[in-house]
Computed example of a mutant assay.
Amino acid sequence: MTVVTVFHLVGFQIPENIKFLIFFLFLMIYCVTICGNLLIITLVSYSKTLHSPMYFFLAQLAMSDMLLSTDVLPNTLHTVLAGNTIIVSFTDCFTQFYFFAATETVESLFLTVMSYDRYLAICKPLHYPLLMNHRLCWTMIATCWTLSFVTQSLHTFSVSRLHFCGNVIDHFFCDLDPILHLSCSDTTIVQLETTALSAVFAVIPFIVIIVSYVYIIITIFQIPSITGRQKVFSTCSSHLTVVFIFYGTIVCIYLVPKRVQSWNVTKLVSLLYTVVTPLLNPMIYSLRNKDLKNVVGKSVRMFLNLDVSRHQNVQMT
């Protein structure tokens, strides 16, 4: 049996006349994604007004978004520039799959932790400082990162042990389904592992998020004033928007029957959660969160004032 040592990533079938346009579009998306998420991490780290559990978890989500985008987009840029098909080694392909699976898992867990944080803040405000303390925050974050990377390393090892009869992956990155399509081994065990991991790290977290927001909505409706309701809901509206985008795309790609999808449709939907979601997350939180907007505005004003002061000092000298 021939041992597969390289894979051919097909990527997108892009006409030659718009190849460079698509390349610069993806490059711009990557740069904006990195800068946007890095800005959130920087603001949360250095602004005292953002030193709270909600923004601590947001900074962790931004880190996972940067990791996901860096895992997928550079290869995508390569496929676009190289004429839609590139050759990647066996090790590189499974390394990319490992980091993709781990970051998707950790994002799901982070969104769950953030929903629990919002539940405590809104439904149990008097006990919130005691329950959501510094130690618990770090414990939950460390658990999310560790669980995600350890479990996905075991899963990736299982997939990599399969025998492959082909090496052409009709996708723009090394995802599980295109890889399994090339296997000539019995994939029953791998499929069972995938189902179990999906249940533990996607279905159960989604249920926890839904239950949390049911309690949150009930609590919000118990607030007598409309202004009070709007103020409380605004603290979790950004997170709820991100949850809908994240799980909505996952449902589209993994729960819609495969016979209904073509590989082109799969690629386009995959773009949503690998490229678009990491780009939108910082924008959603920045535009819909008053605290972040205030800190950004304050930072811009300080920079402009500093620049004006320097200019005046130069003129005086």
Rank of each mutant, 00 (worst) to 15 (best):
H134K: 13
R135F: 10
R135G: 02
R135T: 10
C137L: 04
C137P: 00
W138M: 10
W138I: 09
W138P: 01
T139C: 05
T139V: 04
T139A: 09
M140V: 13
M140I: 10
M140D: 02
I141V: 14
I141E: 00
I141D: 00
T143G: 02
T143A: 15
T143V: 11
T143H: 03
C144A: 15
C144G: 11
W145F: 15
W145E: 00
T146H: 03
T146Q: 05
T146R: 02
L147D: 04
L147R: 02
S148Q: 04
F149P: 00
F149V: 05
V150M: 13
V150R: 00
V150K: 01
V150Q: 02
T151S: 14
T151H: 03
T151M: 11
Q152K: 15
Q152A: 00
Q152N: 15
Q152L: 12
S153K: 07
S153Y: 14
H155S: 07
H155F: 15
H155E: 11
H155A: 14
T156R: 06
T156A: 12
F157S: 13
F157H: 15
F157Q: 14
F157W: 14
V159R: 03
V159P: 04
S160A: 15
S160R: 13
S160N: 08
S160F: 05
R161E: 09
R161T: 04
L162P: 06
L162M: 12
H163Y: 08
H163G: 00
H163E: 13
H163A: 12
F164R: 00
C165W: 02
C165K: 12
C165H: 10
C165T: 10
G166K: 10
N167S: 13
V168R: 13
V168Y: 05
V168F: 06
I169N: 00
H171E: 12
F172A: 03
F172C: 01
F172M: 09
F173W: 07
F173E: 01
C174L: 04
C174D: 03
C174E: 05
D175T: 01
D175W: 08
D175I: 00
D175V: 02
D175M: 07
L176W: 06
D177Q: 11
D177F: 10
D177H: 12
P178M: 04
P178Q: 00
I179D: 01
I179M: 14
L180S: 08
L180C: 09
L180F: 09
H181V: 02
H181M: 10
L182E: 02
L182D: 01
C184T: 05
D186Q: 05
D186I: 06
T187I: 15
T187Y: 02
T188N: 09
I189D: 10
I189N: 12
I189K: 09
V190A: 04
L192E: 14
L192R: 11
E193L: 12
E193F: 06
E193Y: 08
E193N: 07
E193A: 02
T194Y: 12
T194F: 12
T194L: 13
